[in-house]
């Protein structure tokens, strides 16, 4: 549970939709619940925009690749 909680907190902070991750506890005897949960998840995902990482090469091509926070670019001695 905690791992999923942490993962969602991470995804939230790096611009990835946390609701694309689901965790449900379903017993082996709960076949109906499993089916309904999968259908529900698929339906919700379909309502979302297409997965932005579906075409990863295009995403990488568009990166600037030089980002770093300006707050760290102060001259020596200025940060204290």
């Amino acid at each position: 549970m905690r791992r999923v909680e942490i993962l969602k907190a991470i995804l939230r902070q790096v611009g990835i939709d946390e609701d694309r991750i689901w965790l449900r506890w379903i017993d082996a005897s709960e076949g109906g619940l499993f089916r309904d949960t999968v259908n529900e998840m698929v339906a919700e995902l379909r309502q979302k925009d297409p997965n932005p990482m579906r075409k990863p090469w295009e995403m990488w091509q568009e990166t600037a690749g030089i980002w770093r926070p300006k707050a760290l670019d102060l001259p020596p001695g200025e940060s204290e």
Partner: peptide, 25 residues
Amino acid sequence: VREQVFSEFRDKMATPADFADALAT
């Protein structure tokens, strides 16, 4: 400085492409 860095990070990370940008190389 820390808060300024975190604030810049939060502003930057709107989409997965922004995360990829920070890790591009």
